[in-house]
């Protein structure tokens, strides 16, 4: 079990970032949280990581991706990740306010691993982060850091 469950949170809403951060802290989930507010910087960051062997351990264990982002939207970011040979191994959880069927279908079609609607209550956020940690951090086997390694 890795002591640092590395979560990459992509959300342009600072309050949502604050809420998720607080929920992670208050539920005592061992974690490392990296946040970006738009798609471009997220992709830049991930591609830089994948090219640099020395930073291989910085690769996130889970990406929480909002749909509604400035510039390229969440689905496009997702599509870019999932069309990259290295990055596509990282599990991506769509975390968004939207519950439109089209959005859900489109996200799964682009390769989303899960689609979760943002809870309305803070307490439900706490439940959510615990669940995410339990599943993606503890239960699921993580993909190898490098395929050719």
């Amino acid at each position: 079990m890795s002591s640092s469950f590395h979560i990459l949170l992509v959300d342009d809403s600072p309050t949502d970032v604050l809420i998720i951060g607080r929920a992670l802290r208050e539920t005592n989930v061992p974690h490392r949280l990296t946040t970006f507010a738009d798609g471009f910087s997220t992709l830049d960051y991930l591609r830089a990581l994948s090219r640099d062997d020395s930073r291989i351990d910085e690769t996130p264990d889970l990406i929480l991706l909002d749909l509604n982002l400035p510039g390229i939207d969440g689905c496009e970011v997702l599509a870019s990740i999932k069309s990259d040979e290295e990055l596509k191994l990282i599990p991506v959880v769509m975390l968004t306010t939207s519950q439109r069927e089209e959005d859900v279908a489109q996200a799964y079609r682009a390769g989303a691993n899960t689609f979760i609607r943002k809870p309305d209550e803070y307490a439900l956020y706490q439940e959510l982060v615990k669940t995410l940690h339990r599943y993606w951090g503890l239960s699921a086997l993580r993909p190898p850091r490098r395929l050719h390694a």
């Binding site: 809403s13 943002k118 803070y122 956020y125």
Partner: peptide, 21 residues
């Protein structure tokens, strides 16, 4: 209506969460 509702939810979430905080 959908987009408005969607965009209204974010501040609403902030309102409820931060009232609690």
């Amino acid at each position: 209506a959908y987009i408005v509702a969607h965009d209204l939810k974010e501040p609403l979430r902030t309102l409820t969460a931060f009232s609690g905080f």
